[in-house]
Structure formats: C-alpha cells, structure tokens
Computed example of a mutant assay.
Amino acid sequence: MADYSNELVGNSPAIDSLRRLVNKVGRSPTRTVLIYGETGTGKGLVARMIHQVSTRAARDFVDINCAALPANLLESELFGHEKGAFTGAIDRKLGLVEAANQGTVFLDEIREMDLTLQAKLLSLLDTQQFRRVGAVKPVKVDVRFIAATNKVLLSEVTSGRFREDLYYRLQVVAVNLPALRDRGDDVLTLARHFIARFNRAYGRSVTGLAPETEQILLRYPWPGNVRELENLLERIFILEEENEILPRHLPDRILRNAAGPADRTLVPAPTDDPTDYHAATEAFQRELIGRAMSTAGDNPGEAARLLGLSRHALRHQMIKLGLLKP
C-alpha cells in the first residue's frame, strides 16, 4: 500500500494543524468527512491520508469525480446495476460503494452531483444500505464517505443547487485545506521536495533554486496552488538543461508578478484613463482571465474552475472582453 504520510509537505502552522486534524479524523469512527479547499490544494491526497490512518486502511479506497460523469452514469458507477436495468446493461455490475465495503469512498467535486442522486446518497448515509439500479432488494454496506469541494457548500444550499439535509449530514467533520499563498515559506519547502522527486524521475541532478528564483516564487500568489507549483517545476525539468533553476526559466506570468507590487493581490493593468471605472474593470478582468488561462495551460475548463465560473460563463466573458471570437 502506498504511503501518503510524507506527501503533505511543509512546516507552516497551517500544515502542522492539518496533520493533527487528519490523524484525529482518520482514527475517529465518523462515517462522513467533508474537505474544503481551492483547486490544487491536495484534497485527494488528504482524503487518502485520512483513509490510511483509519481502521479501514486494509480495505479499498475508491474515488470518483462527480463532475466527470452525467447523473445516470454516475449512479451506475456508485451503486452498480442489475442485468437489463437499462439499454446496454447486459450483465450485473457491482458499484464502487459495494466494492469499497468496510473501506472508504471519496466523492470529489460533490457539489456537481445531481439533486436526485444527492437524495439517494443521503438515504445511503442514513441507512447504510442502497439498491443497485434496477434491483428490488437493498444491499447493506459499511463505508466511510469523504466528500470534497472547492466551493462553500452553504452557498450552493442557498441557491438550491445542493440539498440542505445532505449538507448537514456531510458536515459532521469539516477539513479546510490552506491555499499555498497562505503557507509562507512552504512554497520553497515544496519546491525542494518536487525537485528531489523529479531528479529521481528524470535522472537529473538539479541542485535547487537560485536565490533570485526563491524570492520570485515567494511573491507569486499561486492561484493553482500546489498543483501549479508541481507542474511548473516538471515543465522546467523537461525543457531546461541547467542544474539550477533560474528566473529566466519561469513563465512570464510569474515574472510579471515579481515586477509588480510586493503584496499578493491581483492588480488591474494600467489604462489610458485611471478614473474610467469600466476600462479599469475590464483591464482587471482581462488580467485575471489571462493568468487563469496561463495557469491552466490554456485549458478553458480548468481556467473556469480556477475562476469559479462555468465554462459557458468564462466563454461569454472572454467574448465580451475581446479575448475570444464569437
């Protein structure tokens, strides 16, 4: 079994507190845990750590992204189905919940789950039993559910997109993951950790970060969090040949940030008339979207996630700002 205990890297007070909480939650008998955290903060890693320190560690840990499948397929993946339950169901299929009996199910992006399926999940949490799609008899299971979201679920409840009763059922224990920008020198600790990993993976001997590079990384706000840092360093390992990571190896978005104000806030790009509210607002939006697209590797779906928008809303805004042709 893989050991994830050494993957939660850092010495900041926020990470020390998180380690203690993970151990307490993992060893407790609670059947539900809710993890909050921005994209890239390591929600999947923390879920696996909770499983690993629990009495369920010898059993399966299964994970599923609730945003990756339409509602009907997600229901079948979770609960399984009987032969003939729907077109194409030529055999009985056991779902992930049944496969994880006495273990852990990790539901990533729980807020994307369809309301009808939320009701079935709530019933399962309350009764510890469910029916496969097309079945009559229920199946009894003993499973811990860890759910994760990058949004405040209470606002989803208020808007009617998430069931209030399910929210309170999941919220028994909440684990909040800190953003990388709030972890101080952990940025450098993580960078050294990833450099050591990529040295092994790529057969390299990169000695580390140049002092100037360290200062630039400390000033960058890391909207993509730990995942963004990891991807950045792997890209440098692939494209660069020097044995020290220099400022010129960093992408423009990070270098531009280093040349700006020392605080970690996004600043609107200058306009011809700084008193023009609409021009300044649009400049800020262009800068924000540009950074998100750069962080996401020009992937609109990931950029929308970073910005907390739907893909449709991001596309509409980019067309409005002249960043995309209709």
Rank of each mutant, 00 (worst) to 15 (best):
M318L: 14
D60P: 03
L154Q: 15
D91A: 09
Y167I: 14
N176G: 05
D60V: 14
D185A: 04
E241L: 09
E75R: 00
T39R: 10
R169Q: 13
S17C: 13
F106D: 12
V9I: 06
K137F: 02
E234A: 06
L314F: 04
T39I: 02
H249K: 09
R311W: 04
N199A: 07
A259C: 14
I15T: 07
P223T: 07
A179F: 07
Q317F: 00
G37E: 02
K24Y: 01
Q52N: 13
T32V: 12
K83F: 05
R59P: 04
A47Y: 06
S294E: 01
P221E: 09
Y168T: 08
S12C: 03
L233N: 05
A71W: 04
E164V: 11
A191V: 02
E109G: 11
D63T: 04
S12N: 01
G42W: 00
G84Q: 13
T189E: 00
E38Q: 04
A14V: 10
P247L: 09
A135P: 12
E82F: 11
S310C: 05
P261M: 07
F284W: 03
E241C: 09
I216A: 03
R248L: 13
H193Q: 11
R204T: 06
I146G: 14
D16M: 09
R291E: 10
V97H: 01
G44K: 07
V105F: 13
P268C: 10
T149G: 08
Q128M: 01
L288C: 11
L309R: 00
T149C: 05
V62R: 00
T104E: 00
E287Y: 13
T149Q: 13
K43F: 00
D252H: 04
G44A: 07
G88A: 09
A292Q: 00
L96Q: 07
R181D: 00
D263L: 15
D3W: 08
Y202P: 06
E240R: 15
E240Y: 11
Q285F: 04
G10I: 13
R197Q: 10
V46W: 03
S123F: 06
Y220R: 05
E228P: 02
L324I: 03
A210Q: 15
S54T: 14
A269P: 03
H312N: 12
A280P: 03
A283C: 05
R253E: 10
V141M: 13
L153E: 13
R204A: 06
H316A: 14
G37R: 04
S17Y: 08
D165K: 06
D3H: 11
V105C: 05
L188M: 15
Q118T: 12
E82P: 13
S159L: 10
R291A: 04
R181Y: 03
V97I: 15
R227E: 01
D60K: 14
F162A: 03
I236W: 11
Y202M: 10
A269G: 14
L229H: 02
I64V: 15
L314I: 07
R311D: 02
G26T: 08
D276N: 12
L8A: 08
Q102F: 02
R19V: 06
R181N: 00
T149Y: 04
N101G: 12
F106M: 12
T275R: 00
K151Q: 15
L288V: 10
